[in-house]
Design a protein around this nucleic acid. Structure first.
Lengths: 348, 348
DNA sequence: GGGGACGCAGACAACGCTGTCAAGAGGACC
DNA sequence: GGTCCTCTTGACAGCGTTGTCTGCGTCCCC
């Protein structure tokens, strides 16, 4: 006859209820549960039965207040509706779940607050680790976590930072591979539709930052190696509309390019539709390469050639880095670089 | 000169550090923070300054242990990589974030444990509300939450259940509308590629359950109203492969259908590619309708006609139902039904 | 000038759990 | 029979908050 507590009509079973039912002290229940000190077989069984009869489950808040790990890892993504990030989250769950950890997924642009604020919130929840994803170069958001001694993995950042591990895609290599692929198909006049430039959309300009800039850098390197001086970079929003606008800009030129590298698949698909809508043949009149290999890349017609980023595997790597740091806090942070694979389809 | 605590190299500022720095008691700090009892302006400012200087943030675990709400709502989805569910999550965040609530997204099939177990875990974390999504008819998973007095919304379930609110799509109406659309285009021999049947894949059969069954029911109702007796339902996995297999089955018939309703867009896209690969014209030889209006539906060529489910709006509604129940626990649960819109593209 | 009202702030006891200290029972051994 | 283990269990403090009780001035009014 355990004495339950009723609050607002809610009833929750506490450890003392289990103890009363099993006829032991709460200490014994706790230790029977955690196995952190020996408990006789008979007692353990009585406790176990009481737990089942009462459907007892320890209060996580009380546990973590006592300093126990929360077995929770925060995964901060810029936009949960971008299919890229659920894949990342899934990869992390692949590794975290079997170890009993929960991924706490936060979409930062859905929040009215800054990413740094989200990090603070997660620290207040005492998460055991944090993964921050998204292309940006500012790692100061992660500082409070580093100071608090919570393992952090930056995902998509280039620069390693003291106390922080990173998981990054080799975007320079990817940009080079994509461009070399087009060169090998005989194209010489190759353009790049990139993300927004700092000085606003314009033809060319060295002002872009972050991994899109890396992809452009790879593109430039490939052209240079091939002895081609004409580079053609347009900027715009990273979206289908941005891709369409970029393509319009390119097609309006006196000498439109024969092939276009696009900073991601959304942009490429937008560019492709713009070209198709104008009656051009893809890849006959203009060949296209994207990045990321999102689901839709295989579904559009012609199917999009793209540089595949093994995002789920990268998520797994990020999770593993966090678990390693949790297990061994003194371990130095690591920087992991992932290569990309050309997935050739019909658009080149 | 606040005395910080160092644990495993982690340093966290506690309320007592703030109190010491501001020269007041911890009680005063607490109340200055919560505003739950009057604090003089001068004191409030001193406390505020101390908080900022120390970067203090209350420990959420201690708060919720004292019975404060966690301002967290669990969102349990079957598969985070299915683009449908991030939209749902995003819709919920649209409503939750401005109210200061966090969505805790859990992908249940990533977990090695049952959905019921996840519900239990969320209760142990003292979430303030739970949204369970996914097509299935078993609401027993939600029982522990109902018993604990935690607001629950079932998403995609048909049957209301005592103490549980539901947000559901009118799948019967959607199935009917899709079929009527094909009828109005002059098709008479119309098939349906459905989800798995309980008795295994087969031609027709009344054994399917859940909303896919509802869509089939709407399809049947439309045919009946039109005076058409020939119904043609094939079953298979809800995936692109399943759609391709279903289409193969249909094309192998003596009299293949002129039009096919598919239980969702993935299935429809798989079916479309199978048809295109066999040299058929879509919609000339076979017209296709899907459900859900996923991103890819607009991207494939021909673009897919589909029944759009305003999933994000439904997520918003689900979140609102939970917030309402939190604000007013005695309020009876509500069942919300959402209609669907035909988005006509090129496949019909 | 005394009594009550009021504004403000501190002390203290929980919340539910776990690590540590301590002790009782029982057996082994001298 | 007494001492010393070992095995098992219980009591207790404390994790960082917040709600409540209490107390101290100050002001107002009769």
């Amino acid at each position: 006859m355990a004495a339950r507590r009723f609050v607002d009509g809610k009833q929750r079973v506490r450890i003392v209820d289990v103890a009363a039912r099993a006829g032991v002290s709460i200490t014994t229940v706790s230790h029977a549960l955690s196995g952190r000190r020996p408990v006789s077989e008979a007692t353990r069984e009585r406790v176990q039965r009481a737990i089942e009869e009462l459907s007892y489950r320890p209060n996580e808040a009380a546990r973590s207040l006592r300093g126990q790990p929360t077995t929770t890892v925060a995964v901060i993504v810029p936009d949960i509706t971008n299919p890229f990030y659920p894949q990342l989250a899934r990869g992390m769950q692949d590794v975290l779940s079997p170890k009993g950890y929960q991924a706490l997924i936060c979409s930062s642009d859905a929040e009215p607050v800054s990413r740094r604020e989200i990090v603070e919130q997660m620290l207040a929840r005492r998460v055991d680790g944090i993964c921050i994803s998204g292309y940006y170069d500012d790692h100061t958001d992660a500082e409070p976590a580093v100071e608090a001694g919570v393992p952090v993995v930056l995902f998509g950042h280039r620069a390693p930072y003291p106390g922080i591990s990173t998981v990054t895609t080799d975007d320079i290599g990817a940009g080079r591979l994509a461009t070399e692929h087009l060169l090998s198909r005989g194209h010489e006049r190759i353009a790049f539709i990139s993300g927004p430039s700092i000085s606003g959309p314009s033809i060319s300009g060295p002002s872009d930052v972050g991994p899109p800039a890396d992809r452009v850098a790879g593109y430039r390197a490939a052209l240079e190696s091939a002895g081609i001086a004409d580079e053609l970079v347009v900027h715009g929003p990273v979206s289908r509309e941005g891709g369409a606008a970029g393509m319009r800009q390119l097609l309006a030129l006196d000498h439109p390019p024969q092939a276009v590298v696009c900073t991601n698949d959304f942009v490429a698909i937008g560019a492709m539709q713009e070209a198709l809508d104008r009656g051009l043949d893809v890849p006959g009149d203009v060949a296209l390469v994207g990045f990321d290999d999102i689901d839709a890349a295989a579904l559009v017609r012609p199917a999009l050639t793209t540089m595949a980023v093994a995002i789920r595997r990268q998520g797994q790597a990020a999770a593993q880095l966090i678990l390693d740091r949790i297990a061994n806090p003194d371990q130095p942070p690591q920087a992991t670089l992932f290569g990309t694979d050309l997935v050739q389809r019909q658009s080149t």
